Amino acid sequence: MPWLWYVGPLALLVVWYLTGLRGRHEARRDAELVRWRVLMTPKAASRRSGAHGGSRKTVADIDGPRPVRSMPGSLERMLDDAGGGAVVSRYELVPKLAYVAVVGPDAKNGSEYQVVTAKLAKPAPRLTVCPLPIIDGRRAPNTGVQFKKDPDFMEQFLVEGPEAKSIGRWLSARVRDALRDFPDAWLFVQDRAMAIAVYGPVDAERLQELVIAADAIFAEHGAGGAPSLLFEDSEADDEDDEDDSAADDEGDEDDSDDDEEDEEAAGAERAVR
């Protein structure tokens, strides 16, 4: 049939075009991930600059987050809360405690996103925080957990979960400030794990901002003493840290007692009514 002479080449042209688009997208994504890892190296972290430098570096040259094949099971399961999808790559921020996953679309999930998953020190209430939807150019009514003492937060974010009072205590002022500083964030918390995600193609600076937001939340609730998720340049301070470690330990014991009292008082004031 003569029409087959046209359909065959046209189909091949469509496949070639779509394959080319996918290849260009993957190349751009990989380049942005290399740039992000460069931004996360100790020297770049101390400078907080170099946004477009380092594109010529190879993977072997990068001293940033290390690629890994898997994450702990509790953190891997948090990806289902964030939307599922096909995991493209994983990077280690703190061994066994915190990771970055880059997720692409699959048959069930059409979104591409990046997510920081981390272990928590204590069981937390199940909750979801997402940007308050915009309908017809206006913010939708906030029907989630109410933060009457923080109307600015309520104007930006919708908080959902079954235990309003526990959620109010967990979303402390520091956690809410971290989310305000990164208004595109989606936060998922369940038991002893959390995931904070941003949706859309990979962008090096945006991914770095996501890790900074996760670091602030992890500092409040993270497991293992909540070490920094940022790759800071601390080699010059190692000797001083060793000399002062005994004094720091004594101070930490006193500070922990004060912090517990402060957190209890602050938690009572922030409880959701």
Results as ranks from 00 to 15, higher is better:
Ser111Met: 10
Ala247Thr: 15
Asp244Gly: 07
Thr128Ser: 10
Tyr6Lys: 10
Thr117Glu: 07
Pro105Lys: 03
Lys57Pro: 00
Val272Ala: 08
Glu264Ser: 13
Glu250Tyr: 12
Ala195Ile: 07
Ser70Pro: 00
Glu26Tyr: 03
Ser228His: 03
Trp170Asp: 02
Asp248Arg: 15
Glu269Trp: 10
Leu4Lys: 13
Ala173Phe: 07
Ala226Lys: 04
Pro42Ala: 08
His52Lys: 07
Lys165Thr: 14
Leu179Ser: 05
Leu33Pro: 04
Val202Lys: 01
Arg174Ser: 13
Arg35Gln: 14
Arg47Asp: 11
Ala173Lys: 14
Gly53Trp: 11
Pro72Asp: 08
Arg139Gly: 11
Leu187Gln: 04
Val189Asp: 03
Leu93Pro: 10
Leu18Arg: 14
Ala204Trp: 03
Tyr6Met: 13
Val198Glu: 11
Phe157Trp: 09
Asp63His: 13
Arg77Trp: 05
Val202Glu: 05
Phe231Pro: 01
Glu269Gly: 02
Val202Gln: 06
Leu10Trp: 12
Arg22Lys: 04
Arg176Gln: 05
Pro9Val: 02
Arg66Met: 13
Gly85Asp: 06
Leu187Thr: 03
Ala140Asp: 10
Arg56Gly: 05
Arg56Pro: 01
Glu250Gly: 11
Val68Lys: 01
Ala140Tyr: 02
Pro201Asn: 05
Arg35Leu: 14
His221Ser: 10
Arg22Pro: 00
Asp240Asn: 11
Val94Asp: 04
Leu21Asn: 11
Val103Trp: 05
Val38Arg: 15
Ala11Tyr: 04
Trp16Thr: 15
Pro9Leu: 01
Arg28Cys: 01
Arg24Met: 11
Ala140Lys: 12
Gly110Met: 08
Leu21Gly: 04
Gly73Phe: 14
Arg35Asn: 07
Gly224Tyr: 04
Leu79Ser: 01
Trp186Asp: 06
Trp170Gly: 04
Gly20Leu: 12
Val116Thr: 09
Asp81Pro: 00
Lys96Asn: 14
Arg56Cys: 00
Val116Ile: 13
Pro123Thr: 10
Lys119Ile: 00
Leu120Thr: 08
Arg22Met: 05
Ala193Arg: 04
Pro162Phe: 05
Lys148Glu: 14
Asp106Lys: 03
Gln156Ser: 12
Glu26Thr: 08
Arg273Asn: 09
Leu120Met: 11
Ala223Pro: 04
Val88Ala: 12
Lys165Asn: 05
Lys108Leu: 13
Gly53Tyr: 09
Leu132Gly: 04
Gln208Glu: 15
Ala185Tyr: 07
Gly54Asn: 10
Arg206Ser: 10
Ala118Cys: 10
Asp215Cys: 05
Leu18Asp: 06
Ala101Asp: 02
Ala101Cys: 06
Pro105Val: 03
Thr41Asp: 09
Val103Pro: 02
Ala11Arg: 01
Tyr17Met: 10
Ser166Trp: 07
Arg138Gly: 02
Thr58Met: 09
Asp152Arg: 15
Ala11Cys: 15
Leu158Arg: 11
Val116Trp: 02
Leu229Gln: 06
Ala107Arg: 13
Leu10Asp: 00
Glu32Trp: 04
Gly104Gln: 09
